[in-house]
Amino acid sequence: MNVRDLLKLEDLKVAVEGDMDQEVTGGYMGDLLSVVMGNAEEGEAWITIQSHVNIIAVASLRGVPVIIIAHGFEPDEDTIETAKDEEITIMTTELPPFQIAKKLITEFGL
């Protein structure tokens, strides 16, 4: 499946459309950047409540194609601009991290 396929879930809204053709191979959930940096795998959708611009550096360095900002948090303006530059997709959801993770697992088998 690719990033675009995630939009089959109505709970997800696109904040930045990056390279939506990139493959999604799994998911990772976390808010401590070092932990995500050291453990997320390339191709994983990253669920977090962090919304500041440093999340783009983490995603870019780890090869994360899509960041899902959960719990109703919205990305900063700086985050949006940098994500565009790096072609990283940002989606938002009102759902808490656990609930959106559950949906990704049950809907897509991630």
């Binding site: 808010d31 401590l32 950047l33 070092s34 932990v35 940096m37 050291g38 977090t48 962090q50 500041h52 440093n54 999340i55």
Partner: peptide, 16 residues
Amino acid sequence: ELGFGAGMGLPNMKKW
């Protein structure tokens, strides 16, 4: 608050 300070900086540098 920004998600830094996990205390993994130097340990990660040593590990990797």
